[in-house]
Design a protein around this nucleic acid. Structure first.
Lengths: 353, 353
DNA sequence: GTGAAAGCGCTAACAG
DNA sequence: CTGTTAGCGCTTTCAC
């Protein structure tokens, strides 16, 4: 099972390893006849140069590490697809590190992030892209931020939709505030005045941003926000159901529209509403945020803010490539504007008696 | 930006590199005092041993390559999560190769598979796991199968839900025929006699298997299958809509139940049915296959055959680990039985006049 | 316990 | 055009 090396090829071709290396990388002219002889042997033995040895000396591996919290959340595969599309052209390959947060306590998750960060460093990846986890924290503990800052000194680092205090990082982000604002304005434009906001976590910056946009839109329209109608508690369908259920169970007036922190919560909210005997959007309008394909698959199809996942991925790959190839003036911050996608889950409020 | 090496540590600690290596791997006893001195320096410089150099000599990288056709299809992240869960314990990390088939012509996809296979070999991964693509073909062209057989000689290879002619491969599969049969029997048990089957591709073995199970269940119940009601054409929500639309537009009798080749098609079918003014399951029952979380998110929730994606992933990781650690008697074939998940999209047929 | 030295498989000067 | 040689950073005999 001994694998063949440049030496084996060289010997059989009666040349030196240098020449073999030359045809492999065509890094210098080689006489046509010897080149063909060597190429023939390469094919004959299906010779594959050992990338480890090559990377060891060239100090580049063509590998990009990706750290994300949960591949099972459809947002991430979507971003990943964008990353792959762009990075493949440049010849990069991906190291996928899923911290598997979905069934983990939060501290364990951050520990895994640290572990993976170190593993990626040891594997000599050319760059690391982070999504979710600690970079999503509205206020990240100093120690955890510092660790990442240290790593940023050793290898190119790009954040997608996140940030960390205490240092400057390269980031590709969607404008969360604009997203929250636009979706709320859509509802207000439809005639809604009593609007709730559910989902997410108050300690996460995406939630904070979306909520801030929501408040801004309400304020601009001269509407007051019912603090009772603001609820947090997660990003899953199940959590969406729970929060919506709670909202519907409340005494007194009901909102005529609900802004959900993401699509999964939006879907859960629709389910809870339907279960409570309401019709969406006739009785209540519901919106999501993310724009994952899933949102177009439910009935009624979810009106949402597309976070343009694919482009987010592509942009990040682009920034990473610039960083790796040491281009001058790489933008520290790339901001994308989300896109309102109006579908079937929103309509004017039921007319009041 | 020069990174520190064992030599730097050794010099400053006044020991040889061998000793540093010993404390790094504790591969031999080292005097407590020198060990501490060295450990101190390691911490001080945040020294990370270069995994490339290490792998070069140890001939193992702890990396497993994964080749899959489309990370955007929720089936794959689910399997991936299972893989990760199991493989993390063993200290493996993943190389993700998405051939991005969703927006590719089919030939291009196979070419990418070949490319990735080669890249993974060069990167010296300890093993390769394949999902989808050519291993899903009912009849894979000889050349394409042979290429994979060659690779199987050089590095451990595991297929998830697939196979290739001309050689023996290690495989972890779900019993597709049983799946098709069980879901059909569920419908028959409910009283359905007029059942359609839509989705998938006739050249793919999963479709062939599911359809075979469908036919077997029908035959066992003494029911005849309407060949007109068997339609193929893909695995996406959109395709499901199209196929279901076609079915509903047909002259003559209508089926009272539809077995869909996967969950996405099932969701598309529900959408088409609802759009046509039918109620699911009152007027028509619809089932899926896959058991992705999404299937539980739609309204009505989709009755489906769970392919037990997580376990599929875990089993594959387990088999791979055995292969890598050269355990004796690794099972060539691991078969899981799918699980019927009854939800809301199936009910007895409407009573006839 | 510890050090010297020989590679792992490849690339990159530097000579010819 | 081509060969010689010195490493990349680490592990691992084999001595001491």
């Amino acid at each position: 099972m001994k694998s063949v090396t440049v030496y084996d090829i060289a010997k059989e071709a009666n040349v030196s390893v240098a020449t073999v290396s030359r045809v492999l990388n065509n890094t210098a002219p080689v006489k046509a006849s010897t080149r063909e002889r060597i190429q023939g042997l390469i094919n004959k033995y299906q010779f594959q140069p050992n990338a480890l040895a090559r990377s060891l000396i060239k100090k580049e591996t063509g590998m990009i590490g990706i750290i994300l919290p949960d591949i099972t959340n459809p947002f991430f595969p979507e971003v990943l697809a964008g990353l792959e599309q762009e990075a493949r052209k440049q010849g990069y390959t991906f190291f996928l590190c899923d911290t598997g947060s979905s069934n983990l306590d939060i501290k364990e998750q951050y520990k895994r992030e640290s572990q993976y960060l170190n593993i990626l460093l040891e594997k000599q990846v050319d760059g690391i892209i982070m999504l979710g986890g600690r970079i999503d924290l509205h206020k990240c503990p100093k120690e955890m931020a510092k660790e990442v800052a240290e790593i940023n000194k050793r290898v190119p680092l790009v954040f997608i939709n996140g940030n960390l205090p205490g240092a400057k990082f390269h980031r590709v982000v969607i404008d969360e505030v604009a997203g929250g604002r636009m979706v709320t304005e859509h509802l207000i434009g439809l005639g809604h005045r009593d609007i709730a906001f559910i989902g997410g976590y108050p300690q996460m910056s995406n939630t904070v941003g979306r909520l801030e946009g929501f408040r801004a839109a309400m304020a601009d329209a001269g509407l007051t926000v019912h603090e009772d109608w603001i609820d947090h508690g997660g990003f899953s369908v199940q959590r969406g159901k729970n929060m919506m259920g709670r909202l519907l169970d409340m005494e007194g007036d009901r909102p005529t529209a609900v802004v959900c922190a993401n699509d999964l919560v939006g879907i859960g909210a629709i389910k809870a509403a339907v279960k409570a005997g309401l019709q969406v959007p006739r009785d209540i309008s519901i919106t999501g945020v993310d724009g994952v394909p899933l949102a177009a698959s439910v009935i009624p199809e979810l009106t949402t803010m597309s976070l343009r996942c694919l482009e987010l991925g592509r942009s990040a790959a682009f920034v990473m490539h610039q960083l790796i190839s040491k281009s001058a003036d790489v933008n520290l911050l790339t901001t994308l504007t989300p896109e309102l996608t109006i579908r079937e889950s929103t309509a004017p409020p039921p007319s009041r008696k």
